[in-house]
Amino acid sequence: MASQRDIDGRDPMHDIHDTPDNRSHQAQSHKANLSNPNTSEKSKKRSAEALQSLGGEDAFYSKDEAEKKADGVAPK
Rank of each mutant, 00 (worst) to 15 (best):
I16G: 10
R46E: 10
R5A: 09
Q28T: 06
Y61D: 03
T19K: 03
K45H: 12
S62P: 01
P37T: 09
K69D: 00
D71R: 08
Q26K: 15
E49R: 14
K31A: 06
A66G: 04
F60W: 06
E65M: 04
A50E: 01
E57L: 04
K42A: 15
Q52A: 15
S53G: 09
R23T: 00
Q52I: 07
H25A: 13
D11V: 08
R46W: 12
N33A: 14
H17T: 14
R23A: 01
D58R: 03
Q4N: 11
L54N: 02
R10L: 10
E49I: 12
E41A: 14
K44T: 06
T39L: 07
A66K: 02
E67F: 02
A27H: 01
S24G: 03
M1Q: 15
S40A: 09
K63S: 04
A66Y: 05
Y61A: 01
D11L: 02
K69R: 15
G72P: 01
S35M: 13
D71L: 09
R10C: 07
Q52T: 13
Y61I: 00
E65Y: 09
P37Y: 06
T39A: 15
G56L: 04
K69M: 02
E41H: 13
G9I: 05
P75A: 05
G72S: 08
A50M: 12
A48S: 09
I16W: 14
K44D: 05
K69C: 03
E67A: 13
F60D: 00
A27G: 03
A66C: 03
A59N: 00
S43G: 12
A2I: 10
M1Y: 13
N36K: 07
R46Y: 10
S3M: 12
